Amino acid sequence: MDISDMRRDFESDGLDRSALEANPVKQFEVWFEDARKAGILEPNAMSLATTGNDGVPDLRTVLLKYFDNQGFVFFTNYGSRKAAELDQNPNAALLFPWLGLNRQVILQGAVEKVSKSESLKYFASRPRGSQIGAWVSTQSQVITSRGLLEQKVAEIKRKFGDGDVPLPSFWGGYRVIPHRIEFWQGRPSRLHDRFEYLRQGDDWLIQRLQP
C-alpha cells in the first residue's frame, strides 16, 4: 500500500529561543500543561526505547508517573524485557508525541531504579485491580491462553482477600536522568523549530537544530 501522499503542513506560531525556560524540566512542565489543557489523550504516554547486549533496539509505550529535576519516572515489572535490557544497558530514550499540538519532546539519559520506598508509595496509590495485575503477570513471558491469566487473577484475589495488596519484590520504578532533551515544534514546509538542551555539569546548553 502506497501512502506517500499522506501529508499535512504543520501550522503553529513556532518556537523562539527567547521563549524557552533555562531549565528543560521547567520547559517540559510548561509544554506538558499545554498538552493536558488541549485535551491530548494520555499526555503522559511516552515511547520508551531500550537496547540490550544484542544491540537491537526495542520500543514500547509506558506512562510517565512523575518528573522533577532528578528525572522522569515510570513503573514496571523488574522481570520484563525492558527491565532485562536496562540491566544490560542502563540508558534509554523517551518520546512524547503531542502531535495534536504539532509538538514532540525527546529525552535521552541514564536509567536507575527508584528506591523501594518510592515504589511502595506509588504502588499503594494504584487501583486494587492494577495492584493485583502486577502480581499476576510474569511480564513478557509466553502464556498459552487468556484463561490461564484469569485463573491467576482469581488465585491472587483469594490469596489477599480483602486485605492490603503488598508491593511485589519484582515490581518497581525506574528514573530516566536526562543528559539531552529536545523540544520539537512543527512548522510549515517541514521547516520545524528544534531546540536541544545538553547537560553540562549543573547547567544546560541550549542550541537550535536544523529541521
Rank of each mutant, 00 (worst) to 15 (best):
I181A: 06
Y122C: 08
K121W: 01
E155L: 02
L191C: 13
E155S: 05
E155M: 04
E112P: 06
G161A: 08
F195K: 11
Q200R: 07
T138I: 04
I143P: 14
L120R: 11
A134R: 00
S119I: 04
G172F: 00
D162L: 05
L149M: 14
T138L: 08
A154G: 07
Q200H: 03
I181L: 12
K152Q: 15
A124Q: 12
R194N: 12
D202P: 09
E155T: 01
G201E: 07
W135C: 10
Q200Y: 00
A110H: 14
S137F: 07
S169D: 08
G129Q: 12
V136I: 12
G186F: 01
Q151S: 15
R158A: 03
E196S: 14
T144M: 04
S189Y: 06
L120F: 03
G201N: 07
D193F: 04
K159I: 08
R199C: 06
K157G: 00
V111M: 10
I156Y: 05
G201M: 00
L149P: 09
K159L: 07
R126D: 02
V136S: 11
G173A: 00
V153D: 01
A124T: 02
G161E: 02
K157T: 00
K152V: 03
V142Y: 13
V142E: 13
R128D: 05
P166G: 02
H192T: 05
I132K: 01
D202K: 06
K113R: 13
D203W: 06
Q200A: 10
